[in-house]
Design a protein around this nucleic acid. Structure first.
Lengths: 187, 187
DNA sequence: TCTTTTATATGATAATAATCATATCATGCG
DNA sequence: CGCATGATATGATTATTATCATATAAAAGA
């Protein structure tokens, strides 16, 4: 090993980070290897030493996406996390946001690997959501599923509509509904 | 008028139909003018006699998308319509499905026109949903918003996960939650 | 039948795509 | 200090892109 042992791994991580950002901002077909590598401070040459194809890169980007699950795990207050998620500020930060919402529409078009990675992330997220359902409440699984759909649907719709009264109204309503689904008395 | 007066209009409609299909299946950047025109039985030459740009075409595709709203308007049974929407069969028909769900992620990347067209469609859909809230129930607007987010989030997530137990479970749960939100007693 | 007008087709341009073969660089070991 | 090797760069290939200028086809009125 001539380079430091973690050198290549760090480069790889950098590529993945930049690719995640660009995929979220421009979509899979909207950004090329050249721009991804340039954003990572490299040129296209080395790409195939790290990934076998653009599709594989995409799947691995999804594999690393556990931000929302992490925030839930680290916070005792699920309502707070969900409220921060269904917020105009998060809506306007598409590139930094969670890929589960931003790349939802891209995944069906990509291969098996992407779908599997996505599904795994959903499963992990559901576990964290379920852990926040008050003890004793029935149907914690259903509650988690409902909250998840409200988050993904709410932020997606709000982003498509941009800034405006309806967008904010929708976010507010989804915020309430998601919190009620998780912690409220219904269901 | 040398050609029949509605000749060009019919061609235009055909282009819009095919473009809608292809955009839903492959995304905005995933399909080119050539393929769209070929799918409409033409060549790329005539495209710019119908639309000023690909972006304008995309916005006009969104403008014509009122399928779910129409189904709601024509059916007295909203629960039936929503159940058909949040169904594995509809999940697997991405190309034919409603663009509000399939193209959600594309809209923020496209221009003002696309966002406005999308927002208009959401407004119309909300009106139809609200019309199905039982008379006397409070907060019909909130109920409609919640049902909408559950539909878009549910079908989007289910498509990204493909066919599988979790996907079906999520659809079933969203179906129940959306119907309960619209017609149930809570909220 | 011939002309005029509208609708579509052909061909071109300049840019960018994914991928790979080959070349160069940087670095730690001897 | 130089060399071997792993990491990155260069250059090329083949394909496709949006867009437009120009050419052709079709059809209705004379």
């Amino acid at each position: 090993m001539r380079y430091a042992p973690e050198h290549k791994a760090r480069t790889r991580t950098r590529i993945l980070d930049r690719a995640a950002l660009l995929f979220r901002r421009e979509g899979f077909a909207g950004v090329g290897i050249d721009r991804i590598m340039e954003a990572a401070g490299l040129t296209r040459g080395g790409f195939y030493a790290h990934f076998r194809s653009k599709e594989e890169l995409f799947a691995q980007v999804l594999d690393r996406e556990g931000d929302l699950a992490r925030r839930l795990r680290e916070s005792p207050d699920a309502a707070r996390v969900l409220s921060g998620y269904l917020d105009p500020e998060n809506r306007d930060q598409i590139a930094r946001g969670c890929s589960l919402a931003t790349l939802t529409g891209e995944v069906p078009r990509r291969g098996r690997a992407a779908r599997r990675a996505y599904t795994r992330q959903v499963e992990q997220l559901l576990e964290e959501l379920e852990a926040h359902v008050p003890a004793g409440a029935r149907d914690s699984r259903s509650r988690a599923l409902e909250a998840l759909a409200l988050c993904v649907g709410g932020i997606g719709l709000a982003r498509a509509m941009g800034d405006g009264e309806l967008s904010r109204e929708l976010l507010a309503r989804c915020r309430d509904a998601a919190c009620a689904a998780l912690e409220g008395g219904a269901a």
